[in-house]
Structures are given as structure tokens and as C-alpha cells.
């Protein structure tokens, strides 16, 4: 599958014209991205540490899942919007960056895992589930999102 055309299109889009022209706005969007990542990371941490019985153990799991799911969804939206804005300024460079692709693979995996596996599984609470399944799901979720953040930081270095 050849995806270069998407990046070429993004590189010549109006958005890219704006993101390349205004350095100050770019820096502010980076801040939005960082704060969104923190929100996402914090809520993922609370959610998965609860599943591992390491945090907020006196609060019922469904209650923790309800709040964290809401804020994770909000963070995913802002992280994506600010991410696309930043990508438009360096689209062609990103296409040739291996950390970028590692991050995108992780991000897609994280989305699918949350919406298709984790939340549907926990919909009826954890009481009827095998505790080892719950632990594995929590560790997998932490692994994915840690990896997305770390490979994302590495984009700027490589």
C-alpha cells in the first residue's frame, strides 16, 4: 500500500500553509498536544492501575471506567487535531521517519484495543471476569500508550 500521496496532499494543503507560516501558533498547538497527552496518559494510568488493584481500590471499577472513558475520548480528539496540525508542517519528513510509523501503529492499536476490546469487555464490571484476563488487559493498555508517547518523543530525535 502506497501512502505517500496522503502526505503529499497534506504537505500542499491550506492547513500546511498556515502551520508552516506561523511559528508561534505551531508552538501553542504543541502545548495543546502535550497537555492532551498528559490528560490521556493520566486517565489511562488511573484506569489501568485501578484494574490492577493498585489505585482507588475502594471505588467500584465501573465508576472509574465511566469517568476515565469520557476524558480519554476528549483527550484522543484534541491529541488527534493538534497532531494533524503539526504533521501538516512536516508531512514529507514524517513519511520517511520510522518512529512516526511506530507511533501511528501504536496509536491505531491503542484505539482499537480501547474501543473494541477493553471497554466492551468491562461493560458489565469485572466481577464475572477472570482476574488474570483483567490484569493482562490493563498491562497491554499501559504498554501501548507508554509506547505511543515514547516513540512520539523520538520522532523529533531521528
Amino acid at each position: 500500500m502506497e501512502l505517500l500521496f496522503i502526505f503529499e496532499w497534506l504537505d500542499t494543503s491550506t492547513l500546511a500553509g498556515i502551520s508552516k507560516a506561523y511559528g508561534g501558533v505551531f508552538a501553542m498547538v504543541q502545548t495543546v498536544h502535550l497537555v492532551s497527552i498528559a490528560l490521556l496518559g493520566g486517565m489511562v494510568l488511573v484506569s489501568d492501575l485501578r484494574l490492577l488493584n493498585l489505585l482507588l481500590t475502594s471505588v467500584p471499577v465501573p465508576q472509574v471506567m465511566d469517568t476515565t472513558r469520557k476524558w480519554i475520548t476528549i483527550a484522543l480528539i484534541t491529541v488527534t487535531l493538534s497532531g494533524v496540525y503539526q504533521a501538516s508542517a512536516v508531512a514529507i519528513k514524517l513519511y520517511h521517519n520510522s518512529s512516526f510509523w511506530a507511533k501511528m501503529a501504536g496509536f491505531a492499536m491503542g484505539l482499537l484495543f480501547l474501543y473494541v476490546v477493553k471497554w466492551p469487555l468491562l461493560r458489565h464490571g469485572v466481577d464475572s471476569l477472570n482476574p488474570w484476563t483483567v490484569r493482562l488487559v490493563a498491562v497491554a493498555s499501559l504498554t501501548i500508550w507508554f509506547s505511543v508517547a515514547a516513540t512520539g518523543r523520538w520522532i523529533g530525535f531521528s
Binding site: G106, F113, V116, V117, L129, N130, T133, L136, S147
Partner: peptide
């Protein structure tokens, strides 16, 4: 999204556990 809602509870669990192991092993290798 419906996710795995069509599956039995047991099937859901096996799929979730299996995928989790693959994910942990994959990123661990990376």
C-alpha cells in the same frame, strides 16, 4: 462501536487475553 458484544462472555475473555499477550510481547520485542 459494538466491539465484541456479539460474542459470548467466555469468547470475549479469551480474545482479550490473547490479544493482550500478543501486544505485550510485540512491544516488548520492539
Amino acid at each position: 462501536m459494538n466491539g465484541m458484544n456479539g460474542m459470548s462472555r467466555k469468547g470475549q475473555q479469551i480474545l482479550a487475553a490473547g490479544l493482550s499477550v500478543v501486544i505485550i510481547a510485540g512491544w516488548g520485542t520492539y
